[in-house]
Design a protein around this nucleic acid. Structure first.
Lengths: 294, 294
DNA sequence: ATAATAAATGACTATTGGGTCATAAGTCAA
DNA sequence: TTGACTTATGACCCAATAGTCATTTATTAT
């Protein structure tokens, strides 16, 4: 599966420069030094390539942030959080550029839903971070702080990416830490309350039906021939129809398919589908699914 | 010029929903109830339509913000600033959505430069606002505050536009005012210093050559037949080659062409070109050009 | 009413870009 | 060397789309 890597790598360069829609498959294959047909041996479609790339990047990013938040010393947590973001965006600037560029504009409805889901995970991490650092004192403002933090970051990220300025990540991170402290310690009028925060997450859930998940499994089955992965998929499909597995077995099966290139979507859908099921209407269980940790 | 209005109005609806590139001229004409040919009687190209729409909206928006900042009571200034933004985005949500969606992605290099220029004007207004409200106390932090304010706003704007939530603009504005006050009063580590702030504005200047401006004048001349506008264009062209007019005459000529639909680009280019000339390397003259006020 | 002028039409062109498939090149066991 | 099988190729297909232009329709002046 070396061709896949090559294509993804080369495509990233073009996507970062021009965006998705402005980059043709033709250009990707030329830039990769392969033929058009070869491209379609590795990917079902251009959309699959994009989806693949998004997942590959975001999956590890989200997991890293989650780990960082859960393992950092509260004293250093904020700084680590910002610094990791800045560093990650600095050396993975290709991906970062794509995200800033395409942003909400992810034409494809499905992509948007996926991005939103990853964003929810990041927001969950930020919430945990705020609780760890400030404790009860931000109980009423933390949901608002999530949006403030994301807004501030986006602003400085853009600068970092497109201004190619002599900016120092360490100092930038310190500056962001200070801003966060200032806001957390002095803000009294949150624009986003917990009610609004969770209201915001409702609509996205409705779009992921069991049929859609099923469909993605069938899609994957057509491309997966390895026995372990296939069996896992079939078991998961059964489980989806009628639950009969223990949580541990389920988690194991999910791990089995996680790294197969044709299973990224299924993996994501299942995580999301079961994630929202177990969440129910309670607001307390909104943590990052553990299965995303590496 | 009633057709133009109609097309722009209908196109806005489609652009807001799907973005520029995903909306075809065909769709625009169908949605407007006209033929394809009729479209090209009103606009040279699809790009011209887009450019036109951007200018029409941003020109008045920038001017309104400028006026608001220069006329508001300092006590009320911040609130008015945020409230105007929120209200404007609420009822002109079509444009707002376009800007959030397409953002940096304005494929066309020229569009990007134009957007950046308008953004610089807004930033200038924000700077003036900060000076009026906080005076000398933010002398070292004001440039950083500009980016913080823009980041915060963007974050909440997106929510307002795509979350269709029960948000109250008045309360949201108050919340943003508080955040600004908190940051302005307690921040000590600005990420963006004045040096960096002005450094950021340099590169964009390089791209606007005298040849480009000249070209845009020639382009316009092909479409402008009204005597006053034509003469103004010709005089401005001469002035561009070899300055010989007084500032007052120049300003008058610019006003003459300002409202002609085919002169938007020329107008913009000339403002930008002369704006950056007179600015030189000094950092003190970065104010909003008066000619943009209504 | 009629001629002249302006406005509007939509079939048409040229181009691009995603995706397919018959064919060719490469690989390897017998 | 042969033949079976895998991998790669790029000409080709089809749909979509920006932009044009000969022709028709509406308007206005005489």
């Amino acid at each position: 599966m070396e061709k896949r890597e090559l294509i993804m790598e080369k495509a990233l360069e073009l996507f970062a420069e021009r965006g998705f829609s402005a980059t043709s498959v033709q250009e990707i294959t030329e830039h990769s030094g392969i033929s058009k047909g070869a491209f379609y041996l590795s990917f079902k479609s251009k959309d699959e390539l994009i989806s693949e790339m998004i997942h590959e990047y975001l999956e590890t990013f989200v997991a890293d942030v989650d780990q960082l938040v859960s393992e950092s010393d509260p004293e250093q947590l904020l700084y680590n959080f910002y610094f990791y973001h800045l560093e990650s965006f600095s050396d993975q600037s290709g991906f970062a550029k794509i995200f800033v560029k395409e942003q909400t504009h992810f034409f494809n409805e499905e992509f948007l839903a996926q991005i939103l889901c990853y964003n929810e995970m990041i927001q969950n991490s930020i919430l945990v971070m705020l609780e760890n650092v400030y404790g009860e004192s931000v109980a009423t403002t933390k949901y608002d702080l999530v949006y403030a933090i994301q807004g501030l970051m986006k602003s400085y990220m853009e600068l970092l990416l497109f201004g190619n300025l002599p900016l120092n990540n360490k100092y930038l991170a310190e500056s962001l830490v200070e801003k966060t402290n200032v806001l957390a310690n002095h803000m009294t009028l949150p624009a986003i309350t917990s009610e609004i925060f969770f209201l915001l997450r409702e609509p996205s859930k409705g779009s992921l039906t069991i049929e859609k998940v099923m469909e993605s499994i069938d899609d994957a089955l057509a491309y997966v021939h390895e026995s372990i992965e296939r069996e896992s998929l079939l078991l998961l499909k059964e489980e989806l129809n009628q639950p009969f597995l223990s949580e541990a077995v389920k988690a194991g099966l999910l791990k089995n398919i996680k790294n197969h290139p044709s299973c990224k979507r299924v993996s994501y859908f299942l995580h999301m589908y079961w994630g929202m099921k177990q969440e129910g209407s309670s607001h307390t269980s909104c943590h990052l699914p553990n299965h995303f940790g590496k």
